[in-house]
Design a protein around this nucleic acid. Sequence first.
DNA 1: GTACATCTTCAAGTCGACTCGAAGTCAAGG
DNA 2: CCTTGACTTCGAGTCGACTTGAAGATGTAC
Lengths: 169, 169
Amino acid sequence: MEQLSIGEVARRTGLRTSAIRYYEDAGVLPPPPRVNGRRRYGPEAVRTIGVLRFAQQAGFTLDEVRTLFHGFGAETPLHERWEALAQAKLRDLDALIARAHGMRRAIEAGLGCGCVRVEDCVLPDHDHAGDGDPYPVRYAGSPPARPRASSRSRSRPATSRSKPRSEGS
Amino acid sequence: MEQLSIGEVARRTGLRTSAIRYYEDAGVLPPPPRVNGRRRYGPEAVRTIGVLRFAQQAGFTLDEVRTLFHGFGAETPLHERWEALAQAKLRDLDALIARAHGMRRAIEAGLGCGCVRVEDCVLPDHDHAGDGDPYPVRYAGSPPARPRASSRSRSRPATSRSKPRSEGS
DNA sequence: GTACATCTTCAAGTCGACTCGAAGTCAAGG
DNA sequence: CCTTGACTTCGAGTCGACTTGAAGATGTAC
């Protein structure tokens, strides 16, 4: 029976070992058996991680992937699990697409404005309060020159917020 | 001469005071004169912040907004500044849109798969290393004011990761 | 026996755009 | 005088998905 080290799984999936450990910590991947303290994966792990990455690339968060993998009865077929999660995701995606088209228009409007000074520009002709951003979607387009690391320890801090604001009345 | 407190500017722009101070700290907004240590804004500040928010909503980062505002000769018209920044941004946007459509297709593919177990799924039929994610696109919704849900992001080292991934050697 | 590759855990750093809290200042009102 | 409210600065926290590094253990080759 083929047993893979974490390094081998990393090689086959194109991930770093740290990512695989992170998935385990995050409860997305089940902890594999250990031999002398080292993780030993069966060959299906590669496939599982493939589905995980696929789901991520489709826009699911790790939280959602965890639900996808472990949030259903064991007998629930994969496509039913997808179905249960896909609706909201498709709506988000359509909103994103609409918003991206809006950004395009905005940029082109900016090209068309003839203003010389920033202060003169009438582009944002809303001067009234309370109209928060329509949808504050942000996207990082320009590939960061160095997509350096990022990290955080596991666990669920999940501090709830919604503090009353004191400062402007 | 109308002088506005930071609270008043916040009210008129719909931002929190902390955001306005942050913009100043970040070098996007110029520090206004102080009276008794307190910031006093002229009325044009509201418009300036309007343009800033508009640019952000069009997909520019604060870094880019800073360039837009202060990265050119003072006599360069606003639309020329836009022009200088817009090309790459439009390309990013088109990539984002294409990627979003790809995600849609992926989700629908997931709906169509008949797999019962995650391990069986053939969806991600790439089992080889090195094919990193196409482009690291991040889109997120997370309102500054309200604790709205649904935020997500994606990002990882580029396909040709210049990192000597080695964990040991 | 000793180098070296690979593994282990755990803590802390990263990125962007902020927000929040603490502690202090200041003017007006009762 | 005391409170209230708006302001000040500074530092730390938030979110997600990781990476990086330290310090130590183990496996394999020479």
